[in-house]
Amino acid sequence: MNLKSQEVVQIMNKGIFQSSEGLELESGEKLEQFEIQYTTYGKLNSKCDNVIWVIHALTGDSNPAEWWSGLVGEDKFYDPTKHFIICANLLGSCYGSTNPLSLKPGSKEKYYYDFPDLTTRDLAVSLDKLRDHLGIREINTLIGGSLGGQVALEWAYALGQKLKNLIVLASTAKTSPWTIGFNEAQRMSLECDSTWGERIDQAGQRALKAARAIAMLSYRHPEDFESKHLDDIEKLDDFRASSYLRYQGQKLSQRFNAFSYWVLSKTMDSHDLGRNRGGVENALSKIEARILAVGVNSDLLFLNKEAHHIAKNAQKGTFKEIKSNAGHDAFLIEYEQLSTLIGAFYLEQV
C-alpha cells in the first residue's frame, strides 16, 4: 500500500448516530428512538464547502467506495483526498440502521411486522437530523440513484439554501403505477413463503430470491439479456438466463432480509414530492439547488422521461442521458459516462 492509500484509509470513519428524540412519521406513527449508521471519507476543508453526500439505492449500504468504486475512492471522481464524502445507511435497511430486526425501545422483542411504514420524506428528515448532529451547515453536492434519488429530492426540497448541487440518477419525482406494480409483485412473492408471518429473522428468506429475480427483470434491459445470457447451443432446459436470475436471488438472500426489502420497497412506492405541496411541478420549482437529472435511455423501471420531467420543472435544472444497454442499473455501472456528465455539470457553474 502506497503512502497516499494509507492516508485515505486513515481518513475513513464509521459512526452510529443515536437519536433519543425519535422521529414523527408521515403515517402518524413515531419511532421513539432510532440509529443511523454512516461512513465518512476524507475531511472538511477550511471553507467547509467540500461535502459530498451520497444516498444509496434499495439494497445498498453506507460504503459507496465499495458499491460505487468507479466513482468514489482514491483517484476517482469523488476523491476523499479532496472531498468530505458521507453516506448513511437508510432507516429500514439492515446494514446498521434501525430496521424491522432491531429491538423495540425498552423491549427484548424485535419489531418484525410491527415496524412502521416509512416514506422517502421520513428518510430525508432522519438524514437531516444526522446532518445537524455532525454540524454540517452546507452540502456542496447531494447525489443518489433510484430510491436514493427519490430521498435526495425530498431532502433537497427541505434543505433550501443549505444545498448547492443535487444530482438525481435514474429516479423520479413521483413513483409511477408501473414501478409500484413491479414492487407489489415482489411483495406478493414474499407473502407466498410459508414462513412469512412468523416472527423469526429468516421469515420470507426463500421468497426473497424470487423477489430479487422479479426486480432484476426491471433493473436490466432485454438487449442486455440477449448479449449476456443467450444460450449458444440448442436447449430444452437449464438456460443461462434462468441460472443468472437464480444466482442473483441467492446472492441477495445471503446479505439482505425480507423485512427490510418489504419496508423499503413500500417506501419507494410512497414517493411523491408534490404531496401536500401543490403537486410535483410546484414542489420541483421550489428546490433552490442546481439540479442535474440523469436518465438512462434503456431504463424500464424509471423511464427516461421521468428524469427529463425533473429537470424541466426545476428552477435550475439540467437533463442528461446515459446511453447503455444495461437498463436501470446503468447508473451503478457506467462510470465513465457518469464522470463526464457530472464533470460538465460542475463546469457550467464556473
Rank of each mutant, 00 (worst) to 15 (best):
3 L>E: 15
6 Q>P: 00
7 E>S: 07
7 E>N: 03
10 Q>H: 12
11 I>E: 10
12 M>E: 12
13 N>V: 00
18 Q>T: 15
24 E>G: 01
24 E>V: 14
27 S>A: 10
30 K>F: 05
39 T>H: 10
40 T>K: 10
41 Y>A: 14
42 G>E: 11
42 G>D: 13
46 S>E: 15
47 K>F: 10
48 C>F: 11
50 N>P: 10
52 I>A: 03
54 V>T: 05
56 H>S: 05
59 T>Y: 04
61 D>S: 13
69 S>D: 12
71 L>N: 05
71 L>V: 03
71 L>C: 01
73 G>A: 07
76 K>V: 11
79 D>M: 11
81 T>N: 13
83 H>S: 09
84 F>Y: 15
85 I>N: 06
87 C>W: 09
87 C>F: 06
89 N>Q: 09
89 N>K: 07
93 S>T: 15
95 Y>G: 01
95 Y>M: 13
97 S>C: 10
100 P>Y: 11
101 L>T: 11
104 K>N: 07
105 P>W: 12
106 G>Y: 06
110 K>S: 11
117 D>W: 03
120 T>S: 15
122 D>R: 06
123 L>A: 08
124 A>P: 08
130 L>A: 09
131 R>P: 04
137 R>G: 13
138 E>W: 05
138 E>A: 08
139 I>F: 04
143 I>A: 06
144 G>Q: 10
145 G>R: 09
146 S>R: 05
147 L>K: 01
151 V>L: 05
151 V>D: 04
152 A>H: 12
153 L>R: 05
157 Y>S: 00
158 A>T: 11
159 L>G: 03
165 N>C: 05
172 T>V: 14
175 T>Y: 12
179 T>W: 04
179 T>H: 12
180 I>K: 13
187 R>K: 15
189 S>I: 14
192 C>P: 00
192 C>A: 15
192 C>N: 13
193 D>A: 11
193 D>G: 09
198 E>W: 01
199 R>E: 15
200 I>G: 04
202 Q>N: 14
204 G>Q: 09
206 R>C: 03
207 A>D: 08
208 L>C: 07
209 K>F: 01
211 A>V: 02
213 A>Q: 14
214 I>N: 07
216 M>A: 00
217 L>E: 00
221 H>Y: 09
222 P>R: 02
225 F>P: 04
227 S>F: 08
227 S>E: 14
227 S>N: 12
228 K>M: 09
231 D>S: 09
233 I>M: 04
234 E>K: 12
235 K>F: 00
237 D>Q: 13
238 D>I: 11
240 R>N: 10
242 S>D: 14
243 S>K: 14
244 Y>W: 12
250 Q>Y: 14
252 L>N: 04
256 F>D: 04
260 S>N: 07
264 L>K: 09
265 S>N: 15
268 M>S: 09
270 S>A: 14
272 D>P: 08
275 R>D: 07
280 V>M: 14
282 N>C: 07
283 A>Y: 11
287 I>Q: 02
290 R>L: 02
291 I>E: 09
292 L>R: 06
292 L>D: 03
293 A>Y: 01
294 V>E: 03
298 S>V: 04
299 D>C: 08
301 L>Y: 15
301 L>W: 07
301 L>C: 07
306 E>Q: 15
310 I>W: 02
312 K>W: 01
312 K>T: 14
317 G>K: 05
319 F>G: 03
320 K>F: 00
323 K>L: 08
331 F>K: 04
332 L>S: 02
333 I>K: 06
335 Y>K: 04
335 Y>Q: 01
344 A>L: 06
347 L>F: 02
